[in-house]
Design a protein around this nucleic acid. Structure first.
Length: 356
DNA sequence: CCTTGCGGGTGTC
DNA sequence: GACACCCGCAAGG
């Protein structure tokens, strides 16, 4: 199936590869190369028909990470893990942010969570969300295969993503967390709590009215985000930052990055000015809260607008403090990589924190 | 609550 | 048989 397409892309791959072992194998081969002269640095956005050999020490490879939203697919082969792409969640209104960026949310991996996600509204315009399915592999989703063999982890991708990049896991998680924190500690909810307390004392039944209060003076208690910051910054994450690092062996691999603006740059450019302009970064421009499920999105609107909009990255995006000078090596790169990610994460959340 | 991995099962080609 | 996909379960964060 799709052998023709495979073959044509394989030619590109061959020309791009500097090492024979990179393309002389297939993930389904009974025996995979045992002598690998050079292993690859982890690829966060693998695209097209590429193969990589990672070190079995590579934490990202161990976890079968990808910044594409990949879900597990049962191929009834316990030796080869197969994953298929879920595409990207876009705004049904095709809205753009003020600076012209589109909404590209990360589809939830879990089916139920994804259905729930699609019932929510665009964080930018409150319009309906739409799942843009991946059909980059002969009309089917792009598939990724992982196979652990000795000291190596073999990776093979089949198909070229025919959709924009979703936000990364880090971005999606940050957005969710900020939304939760915002929802829990917005003046509206605090006010609701107070009103409920007062009314319960008075024997009255609380109404939904507090939910309709404008969110203009929304204010994030420092502890909330700082707590999240400290927690997040301690985790080695698969941040978009990692995609900016200079990998030793990534020739011709990152097709999608060509069309991609730098999200990290846009994070600083879009979040910082807002935060520093004396406005509340979490202020909702979308009107009052409380209009059902969409209303609960409103606290997210600002963070979502900032976080979800610039998911695409160029390898030359704003470098991490470590990335500009560091040349991570596959065998020892994770540690240094992790340090960089810590900086990046701090950077990301630092910029998100209105009260720093 | 969500992600991730596993595996049984079904339908199509 | 290969492949895509549905479902539920379990572990873990």
């Amino acid at each position: 199936m799709l052998k023709g397409a495979d073959d044509s892309v394989m030619e590109q791959e061959d020309s791009a590869s500097r090492h024979g072992e990179m393309t002389s194998w297939d993930i389904n081969d009974i025996k995979l190369p045992q002598h690998v002269s050079q292993i690859d640095w982890f690829q966060e956005w693998p695209d097209s028909y590429v193969k990589h050999i990672y070190s079995s020490e590579d934490k990202n490879a161990q976890r079968h990470h990808s910044s594409w939203a990949m879900r597990n697919t049962n191929n009834h082969n316990s030796r080869i893990l197969k994953k298929s792409c879920l595409g990207v969640v876009v705004c049904g209104n095709n809205c753009s942010t003020l600076d012209g960026r589109k909404i590209y949310l990360r589809p939830a991996i879990c089916d139920k969570a994804r259905q729930k996600q699609q019932r929510k509204c665009c964080p930018n315009c409150n319009g309906p969300l739409r799942l843009l399915s991946c059909r980059g592999h002969g009309g089917y989703p792009v598939t990724n295969f992982w196979r652990h063999e000795g000291q190596f982890i073999f990776f093979q991708s089949k198909g070229a993503h025919d959709h924009p990049r979703p936000e990364t896991k880090l971005e999606a998680e940050a957005r969710r967390s900020i939304q939760k924190a915002k929802t829990a500690f917005s003046p509206s909810s605090l006010r609701l709590k107070r009103i409920q307390e007062v009314e319960s004392l008075a024997g009255a039944v609380p109404t939904q009215e507090p939910l309709l209060l404008p969110n203009r003076d929304a204010h994030m208690p420092p502890a909330i985000l700082r707590g999240y910051l400290s927690k997040s910054s301690q985790e080695p994450m698969l941040s978009s930052c990692s995609g900016h690092l200079p990998y030793p062996r990534t020739a011709g691999e990152d097709r999608a990055s060509r069309e991609a603006p730098t999200w990290s740059r846009s994070l600083t450019q879009h979040v910082l000015p807002v935060a520093e302009g004396g406005h509340d970064p979490f202020r909702s421009d979308l009107g009052p809260l409380g209009d059902g499920s969409c209303g609960t999105q409103s606290p997210l609107a600002y963070g979502g607008g900032c976080l979800c909009v610039p998911p695409q990255a160029t390898p030359q995006g704003r470098p991490c403090p470590m990335a500009s000078g560091a040349q991570p090596h596959p065998q020892q790169g994770w540690g240094r990589h992790q340090v960089c990610l810590k900086y990046c994460n701090n950077d990301v959340f630092f910029n998100l924190n209105p009260l720093r």
